Amino acid sequence: MNFEDVRQMINELKMIVNIALDDAITVPVKNDKACINLHGTNYDYLFDLNRKGHRKPKCTYQLRDANAKSKILFRIDLIGRPHPNPAGNYAYADEILECPHVHLADFPVYGIAVALPLDAPEVHMHLNPSDINNLISCLKVTFERLNVANRTDFKYNLEDDIL
């Protein structure tokens, strides 16, 4: 799949399909994870909410292609280890990015291997500094970035504190 196809998948209109409107979307507790099914205009997706951390707390939200489940299209690492970027000819080459940062599968040449800071022009997310420690705010902004049309139809719950 080429970068234009991946970009189309990231940006196409999507709907949450496996959660009833009277149910809430719940950010899982530490050391747990959840998955939400999304239906797009042309594709189906899996949206992971992952708080499993081996040694340290972790929180990652990611979009995957439902037909190629190992193919990550978009990931935001809110809490976790720093990410070392590969060498190359791009703005963040050879840098180590702390969390939070974003990975985009449509990043030219390097794809998902590159971490981008939240304020990078390619990211297109509007998270205020006060929102960074609020997992529900981050989830809502992530859904907005991924063009999830019915994101405002749901209530959101957080089962425990961020750390």
Rank of each mutant, 00 (worst) to 15 (best):
N11G: 14
N11C: 09
E12W: 05
E12N: 09
K14D: 00
M15C: 15
M15P: 06
V17R: 13
V17K: 08
N18M: 01
L21M: 12
L21S: 08
D22Q: 09
D22F: 09
D23P: 13
A24M: 12
A24N: 14
A24G: 12
I25A: 14
T26W: 02
T26H: 05
V27L: 03
P28L: 12
K30G: 14
K30H: 12
N31V: 02
D32T: 10
I36T: 07
T41F: 13
N42E: 11
Y43D: 08
D44E: 08
Y45M: 03
L46I: 03
L46D: 04
L46Q: 07
F47V: 06
F47P: 03
D48A: 10
L49A: 06
L49R: 06
K52V: 09
K52P: 00
G53A: 00
R55F: 06
P57E: 09
K58L: 14
T60R: 04
Y61F: 12
Q62L: 15
Q62R: 13
L63I: 01
D65F: 06
A66P: 04
A66M: 07
A66N: 06
A66R: 07
A66Y: 05
N67M: 11
N67R: 12
N67T: 10
A68M: 12
K69M: 14
K69S: 13
K69L: 13
S70R: 04
I72L: 11
I72P: 03
I72Q: 15
L73I: 01
F74Y: 13
F74H: 03
I76E: 10
I76W: 09
I76S: 09
D77I: 07
D77K: 08
D77N: 10
L78W: 10
I79S: 11
G80W: 15
R81D: 13
P82R: 10
H83I: 08
H83F: 07
H83Y: 07
P84Q: 06
N85Y: 02
N85R: 03
A87Q: 07
A87V: 05
Y90T: 15
Y90Q: 12
Y92E: 01
A93V: 05
D94E: 07
D94A: 08
I96N: 04
I96P: 02
E98G: 11
C99D: 11
C99F: 08
P100F: 12
H101C: 09
V102S: 07
H103N: 13
L104Y: 01
L104W: 05
L104M: 05
L104A: 00
A105E: 08
A105T: 02
F107D: 01
P108W: 01
V109Y: 15
V109Q: 13
Y110G: 00
A113P: 01
V114Q: 04
V114N: 01
V114H: 05
L116I: 08
D119T: 01
D119K: 03
A120I: 04
V123W: 01
V123N: 02
V123R: 02
M125C: 00
P129R: 06
P129L: 06
P129V: 03
I132Q: 05
I132Y: 02
N133C: 15
N133M: 13
N133A: 10
N134T: 07
N134H: 12
L135G: 15
I136N: 03
S137R: 10
S137K: 15
C138F: 03
L139M: 11
K140R: 14
V141P: 00
E144C: 07
E144W: 06
